[in-house]
């Protein structure tokens, strides 16, 4: 099995990891409560989607 011959330097490791980036999530406004929500998803603050209510969508832990 092929294995690396040399230990990878901290510098090289960190240079590679400098490319790990996150992107901001796209958000839309809930038509019901005007709060932020992910598109095509029930609202985490009021739990509605297209006029229907989904209690499971409500976030109590991560609220705010």
């Amino acid at each position: 099995m092929a294995v690396p011959k040399r230990k990878m330097s901290r510098s090289n490791t960190r240079a590679r990891r400098s490319q790990w980036k996150t992107t901001a999530a796209t958000l839309t406004t809930c038509p019901q409560c005007q709060g932020n929500k992910l598109p095509h998803t029930a609202c985490p603050t009021c739990g509605t989607y297209k006029g229907r209510t989904y209690r499971d969508a409500l976030k109590t832990v991560h609220a705010g």
Binding site: L38, H40, T41, A42, P44, Y49, R52, Y54, D56, A57, K59, V61, H62
Partner: peptide, 16 residues
Amino acid sequence: ITKIGTRKGDNAPMAV
């Protein structure tokens, strides 16, 4: 199917 965001433990996307 309605998406309802992610689960707390493993961040799995949940749906009803």
